[in-house]
Design a protein around this nucleic acid. Structure first.
Lengths: 182, 182
DNA sequence: AGCTACATGTAACGAGTTACATGATTAT
DNA sequence: ATAATCATGTAACTCGTTACATGTAGCT
């Protein structure tokens, strides 16, 4: 359900190809939505059949033809109605935490290494988000409403990565603390 | 894949029925894994066929019979091997952030109300996690390794809820800030 | 009389993943 | 040469959700 709406939200007032959408998902929307190329193409076909989007075929020199999609009025209504509905928090299925839960079965170093690997990853993500923040949203108070909306989602990404980095430190400290003397 | 391992991790050294597992998932594991009753029963059948778990039928007076499952040695090996594999962060598909992204299409109050509703929810979750922390993990330094592992997952829950609460405040502040004068 | 807890299951569907398939252009 | 980028698609499969089905015990 929500992938359809995420595509509509990403299209916004722009006209994009399936490939453009996929690029946008992998580069800009990773901190709130993830979708594969295949999923996007499938969903575009469906949305077009429903009348929420329409496309124009564009021929290119030396490149495959592409379908440029844009939202229809019907699609816009669909998106606006959906925004007004209450939504639940996303389900959490975090493998690392399951591994931590069962880590008393393995040497402490095994899980500590895995946590360190993850922390590095979150540090890299954070750095990328902070760069994006300073480059694209240099003066938050002066942004247009549309840009403010984007900036708010990025702020969530930054907070999430920070939270992970701090948790990794805490987790390792607890795991390496002296066992109770008894 | 990972649901199977989460069931194994939850079983640990205990013997539990499908119903017990479901209760455990909904009460204790919500902050790192969510699964429906149906999913759990389906997965238990599969794991039993694979030899990772075995069950004993237990008849009860005035209650339906139940199957008490426990991990086999094979299951334990499977779990330990899995822990050693590197794992990727969970995919994020957060509807609220998509709504924020597209919220320039609706009145500001619409999205602000939804963010406030979500903040209340996270405040309630946080309160429940903090209660669990003081009741079950009163003296973190003195915990057994197994309990430490559980405590670490709870700490992530606490950090996540705090992060949400803070983000909600920030998001509302940005949305309600004066628009640029031009 | 109706709700919650206990206890397990089937069936259909929707969403997400992985593999396969094609083919030109541009950069290293 | 070979990899990456552009551009779209089919097919099979697994995972997750929702609906339906059954039946007892205890509480209000």
């Amino acid at each position: 359900m929500a992938l359809a709406h995420t595509i509509l939200a990403t299209l916004g007032n722009n006209a994009l190809s399936g490939y453009d959408l996929w690029k946008n998902f992998s580069e800009c929307s990773t901190h709130y939505w993830q979708a594969s190329q295949q999923q996007i193409y499938r969903e575009l076909t469906k949305l077009e059949k429903q009348g929420a989007i329409s496309f124009e075929m564009v021929a290119q020199a030396g490149r495959p033809d592409k379908k440029i999609y844009k939202m229809t009025n019907q699609g816009k209504v669909m998106l606006i109605d959906w925004i007004a509905e209450p939504s639940s928090p996303a389900a959490i299925r975090e493998e690392l935490l399951v591994k931590v839960l069962a880590s008393h079965l393995v040497p402490v170093t095994t899980i500590v290494k895995e946590i360190q690997r993850r922390q590095k990853l979150h540090q890299d993500n954070l750095a990328a988000y902070l760069t994006a923040a300073t480059e694209k949203f240099a003066n938050p108070a002066q942004l247009s409403l549309e840009k403010k909306c984007m900036y708010i989602t990025l702020r969530r990404g930054i907070r999430l990565e920070n939270q992970w980095i701090e948790w990794c430190d805490e987790a390792i400290a607890i795991l390496q603390s002296e066992p109770p003397a008894n």
